[in-house]
Amino acid sequence: MKTSTSLGSLWDTWGITAILVLLLAVAPVLTPDFFSLDNAQSVLRESAYLGIVAAGMTFAIASGAFDLSVGGQLALCSVVSLIGFAAGGTALAIVAAVATGLACGLINASLITRLSVPPFVATLGTLFVFRGVSYILTQDGPKTLPYDQIGSPFVKIGGLNVAGVPVPFVIMLGVFAAAWLLLRRTATGRRVLAYGSSPEAAKFCGISPTRLRFFVFALVGVSVGIATLTYITRVWTADGSAQDGFELKVIAAVVLGGTSLKGGKATLIGTFSAVLLISVLNDMLVSEGVPSAYQRIVLGGVLIIALTIDGLRTRFAAPGSLRRAVSGLGVRTPQPGSVR
């Protein structure tokens, strides 16, 4: 399915990447140590868990829904994974993480399809429930990797570098590669996009909403399970309070990357770049010693600027849009067929 390469659609996919490149060009000027090996590795290592979940979330948003429970899922997968490690070592920890993620995704999907709870509310509810279960499991204190396990392969997942590239980032690359193939080269991927564009039309084409939603939410759950492996092996601990507010960060990254909240459109390249953009920006702000109050202001501002550009871009994509945009800055006249 070839899309026309208008400026607008190029921006769709590569816009955020362009901004990322710009930022990287500026970074060493503002923070001299930015491209030191340690710092670069740190940024890449840190972006992994956000990135992997964002990849899964891209599918969800492309299908027209979002999953607010990923923060709770991360907490629960982390706690269960650590319990698994204590019981059966690295292998069990890995299996436990992914299995828990899958289970959470299936629970979400069931609520949404069988009980017809709207995704926003269902995942809001499961966010509380998953965190609550994590709290119950850690009532005697957070689950932690014992210090003497520092040599174990599980810890190495988080700490090791391959050819100078941190393993968590390698995993993230792998996940994005697989996700890209899934989205662009399989029928399932096309179905996700079709469903997100128009659920009614998709139904007429024989796409089963139930199966699609199961797929999408299970995918998000599995991505959280995999992300857990990159997270818990760096932090070594978890309880119910892990990563409060994670879900908003993930969704922000996906939307920042260019995937539309309306559904039907997705760009994994955009998500990937947006995740790196957020990590790089955060790293620069911390290195500069910017007080956290101002860090918040900067990050919020970036979000707005990036999406303003996106909104303006949409306006320029349709024919005659330049004229409309100019007149639109003044008096607004109703225009049938305008995108917003």
């Binding site: 908003l248 922000a252 939307v255 909240l261 979000l303 707005i304 996106d310 909104g311 917003r340």
Partner: peptide
């Protein structure tokens, strides 16, 4: 500015 409400209010 045409920013979607979720992101705008998040920002």
């Amino acid at each position: 500015l045409g920013v979607t409400p979720f992101i705008a209010t998040l920002a």
